[in-house]
Nucleic acid binder design. Structure first.
Length: 430
DNA sequence: GCGATCAGCT
DNA sequence: CACAGCTGATCGC
């Protein structure tokens, strides 16, 4: 059996300690109420929410990592077998309540695992997080960055959540006689609901389990399970469909709002056949940035803060690019700030390319020799090669990595295989 | 019968 | 397409 030191969002055996970035289901594949493989480190909010997801979990195994503080762990070096100390700091990831990124320092070097995150300059806590990260790094190099590359392609461009939230409020205001339903998940988008509530001075209906989550997180008392108190309801995304909307409209005029970055990403893919295809306007409402040369490193990519990006995809449905993952421009800013030696995406794709190395290798520290090897290859070949560079040769102590895979639908067998892979990383295997 | 995993859907 | 997730079927103990 493999032995290792630390796993992040990865729950197979063989590590000494385990870290969880946030409680979304695709990061907890393999975790269960019967967990007993070792200590589980997470943020305070995640710890607070833990029993709602894993009711019989042995809470004595949970260790809270306070945000912004260095924590030390006494572990056993998988290479030498002797005691070694690892330091870790959690930093707010602004993805969903409790979500954090982890910065590790140890014999393996310095690594940052972002988990899912967003990096919005306009957010009022942005400077706090940025300063925390830079102070923690001091002047030391970041050996490896495990990055949320969900939307790592210049075509994936959407505004800040602040802008998207205003658009959502505008839609609600423009429908004063309508009921409104908003599709959300079991965790995330709370800030959007609070913004709607504050701006329009109304309560928001949520389903009972969701109300419990709101209470556990200490949100203000603007959420209710009483339908009569409000015309705005946040409903589980899985129960949000055209059929649902049509059914509701037989009773009362109702519109649905889908907050998601995904349709914009997908539209870019669909309009061009692939993400590297020639630029073409996809809609009068949504103009993605027309930048195909990012890989050469000569251009910057500013977010579209002022575009009208609401899409009416159906008579009753508005889709708004409110994304809890960072867009391409934010990825670029994040990498330019940190200048890691090596980048590894935590999402790998079979259907279209989102490899951060393809777009940002010119921003990486000292790995030019490796990239140079591939410079004579054509684009397609290079794309395959850079994704498989073995980082074990670059980091003392060695890492072992498993990425979260995106699914490709045509190949059914492949899909079930990929499902097993899940998320996460284990560091410092022997 | 139970939990874990998988298929299929949005 | 599939962010993150649900339901229901099937598998293994």
């Amino acid at each position: 059996m493999e032995s290792g030191m630390i796993s992040v969002d990865k729950w197979s055996s063989g590590s000494q300690v385990y870290f969880l970035t946030h409680l979304h289901a695709d990061h907890t594949v393999g975790l269960s109420s019967k967990w007993k493989r070792g200590l589980l480190y997470c943020s305070r909010d995640t710890a607070r929410l833990f029993p709602t997801k894993f009711p019989d979990f042995n809470l004595s195994l949970i260790r809270v990592v306070e945000i912004g503080c260095w924590h030390s762990l006494s572990l056993v070096s998988p290479t030498s077998g002797s005691a070694t100390t690892v330091y870790v700091m959690a930093i707010d990831a602004n993805h969903c309540p409790g979500s954090v990124m982890y910065l590790f320092r140890g014999e393996f070097g310095c690594m940052l695992y972002t988990g899912d995150f967003r990096w919005e300059k306009s957010r009022n806590t942005f400077e706090v997080g940025r300063t925390m990260l830079l102070n923690a790094l001091k002047n030391e190099k970041l050996d490896i960055l495990y990055l949320d590359n969900t939307y790592c392609n210049p075509r994936f461009s959407f505004p800040s959540r602040e802008v998207a939230a205003r658009e959502i409020v505008d839609i609600i205001t423009a429908h004063p006689e309508h009921d409104i339903i908003i599709g959300i998940d079991s965790l995330g988008k709370e800030d959007l609901l609070l913004y709607i509530s504050r701006t329009l001075n109304m309560k928001i209906w949520v389903w009972p389990e969701r109300l419990q989550v709101m209470h556990l997180l200490g949100f203000p008392d603007v959420f209710t399970t009483k339908t009569s108190l409000t015309r705005v309801r946040a409903v589980p995304r899985y129960s949000f469909s055209i059929e649902t909307l049509e059914c509701l409209n037989t009773v009362r005029p109702t519109i649905g709002i889908r907050p998601s970055g995904l349709p914009w990403a997908m539209k870019a893919v669909k309009a061009n056949g692939n993400v590297f295809g020639s630029s073409r306007s996809t809609s009068g409402l949504n103009k993605s940035n027309e930048n195909t040369d990012i890989a050469n490193g000569s251009q910057t990519h500013e977010p579209n803060e002022d575009l009208r990006s609401v899409e009416k995809s159906h008579e009753y449905i508005y889709t708004v690019p409110y994304s809890d993952h960072l867009c391409f421009a934010e990825i670029q800013e994040f990498i330019e700030l940190l200048r890691p030696i090596k980048i590894k995406g935590i999402v790998s794709s079979l259907s279209f390319n989102i490899d951060p190395c393809y777009f940002f290798r010119h921003l990486c520290g000292t790995k030019q020799a490796i990239w140079r090897l591939h410079q004579t290859l054509d684009n397609d070949e290079r794309l395959e090669k850079v994704g498989t560079v073995d980082i074990k040769s670059t980091i003392p102590g060695s890492f072992s990595v498993a990425g979260r895979k995106r699914k490709k639908v045509q190949l059914v067998n492949r899909v079930s295989l990929l499902r097993k892979l899940g998320h996460g990383v284990r560091i410092a295997d022997s």
